[in-house]
Every structure is written in structure tokens, then in C-alpha cells.
Amino acid sequence: MDFGLKGKTAIVTGGARGIGRADCHVLSREGAKVAIFDILQEEAEKTAQAIREEGGEARAFYVDISDRELVNRQVGQVAEMYGSVDILINNAAICDTIASITKFDDEQWKRDLEVNLTGMYYITKAVFPIMRRNRWGRIVSMSSIVGLLGGYGQASYTTSKIGVVGFARTIALEGARYNITSNIIAPGIIGSEIFLNSISDPVKDEVRARTAFGREGETWDIANAVAFLCSEQAKYITGVILPVTGGLDLFTILPHQ
């Protein structure tokens, strides 16, 4: 299937590693030029290099998405370099705060919402006028299944991830008249660096057992869904939540379905 993305320009936040990196590779294989926005400069450069070695076009940009000035400047850079911004993948997020509510650190709470929500707001605001001018745009924002279900010890992360839903659906309403679609992917357990390196094996198995398939997904599973939602074929799909969970959410009641 030709996704119709040849010559389009994509910004992927948090594109240096994990799911974001898979997004970059798949979008590049579909013919898009990729701007990798990340605070991890070295890893972002490595990912860009790997894409160029595959014959794609990719550049790494140092961006802390909670820094409005920097976001505006770098989006401007991309638009100047590639002539446009057609696709925005809101993927960057931090989820390293784990604490029950009484022990939750106020500063961590603020920081997590600042990056996961306000950062997404800054960059979407910077990119939207370019898409509106082109009368074409695709925005895919990463929620998380724990955003929809709650996640023990993850107050700030889950709050930000359900916030993503409200934000992205509002952008869907505001963008519809300009052929800008805005959709949400809610990954389940995905075998990215975070899952593989920071969780003990028994806990991994416990989590796997909660999926219908009995295994974690791959970063490619998310990237394929991202590419589909960015495609020409998905032009009438907007405001939806697509869980990519291997059936994790089938064992409980999912809101918004």
C-alpha cells in the first residue's frame, strides 16, 4: 500500500529512541523527510544517521519541548530547511515518576505535566499554522493505555496521558476544516528500552500475562499504526483513539469506546 507520504516532512518528538525511533524509520521508509526532536542529542544524531544510511532523509534537532522559544525556533528551522511541516508525531514524554499519591513530589508533578502536556501544546501550536496554510496535516499524539485506565503510582503520567486525549480531540475539531487530522494512539506494553531495561523479569511476565496475546508489542507495531494514521488513506479518520495493546484493555472497562 502506498501511503502517499513521499516528499512530506515529519517532526517526531522524542524520536531518538524507543517508539519514536521506530516512527522515524517507518515514516522515512514511506518517503517522508524526518526531523527528530529530542533532548538526547547523541542518540538523535545516531538515529538520523541510521535513516540516512537506509537512503532516507533525516536530521536531528536539539529540542526540549517544554522550552517554548526553542520549540518555535526549531520548528522554524525545519520549515525553512524542508519547505514545510506536514506531519507531527507528539511522542516525547517522561514517565519516570513512580510514587503513591501521598509520597508524590510536587516538583515532579509539575515537571511531568510541563513536558508531557504543555510541551505538546507548544509544538502543536507552532506547527498548526503551517499545516493550515498547506490545507493538509497529520498529527498523531501518543496517549497510553494507562492514561485511559489509570496506572498505580503514576499520577502525573496518567493525568498527562488522558490530557493528551482532550487536547488531540480539540485539535481534530479545529483542524477538520483545513484537512488536518488529529488522532491518538494508546500503546499498551511495548518492548522499548524503558520496558526492557528498567523492569524486573518477574514483573515483565506479570504484565505480559495481562495482555490477550501474552506478549509485549514491538515498537514497529506502534510505528505501523502511526504511519497508517498519517497516510492519505486515513484522511477521513480524525479524533479517534486507537489502542495498540495486544488486547490488554479487553480485561477491563475502557472509557471512550
Partner: peptide, 13 residues
């Protein structure tokens, strides 16, 4: 391949 039990709206929002 990792998506099951889902409903995808194709409805222009």
C-alpha cells in the same frame, strides 16, 4: 498484528 478488540471510527471526527 498487535491490535485486537478495537473499534476504529472512520467518521470525519
Amino acid at each position: 498484528d498487535y491490535v485486537t478488540g478495537q473499534v476504529l471510527g472512520v467518521s470525519g471526527g
